[in-house]
Amino acid sequence: MHESAKPMNAKEILDREFLQIRSHILDIAAALDRQDRADGDTRFDSRRQLLEEGLAILRSDSSDRAAKVQLLFSREYDPAWREA
């Protein structure tokens, strides 16, 4: 058993990470703007659609968003892979 000196509560975590998260959101917003501003259209590119699905996971109430985003960007596992 490891006694924690003083685990951070939710507000303390938000206090500490708010500016960092804000910066990450701005990075994503600017990257999407950059694509939209450039010649061509990525709206129907499967990778762009994956990004949109990833953003939807961020807005969900799940407590395991990171694992869900990881699986979204993963190749499928086939338990019968040895027979392929």
Partner: peptide, 14 residues
């Protein structure tokens, strides 16, 4: 790494 990690890890466990 990346998109190959989940599939590869499960194959390794198999």
């Amino acid at each position: 790494h990346l998109e190959d990690k989940y599939q590869g890890t499960r194959m390794i466990l198999d």
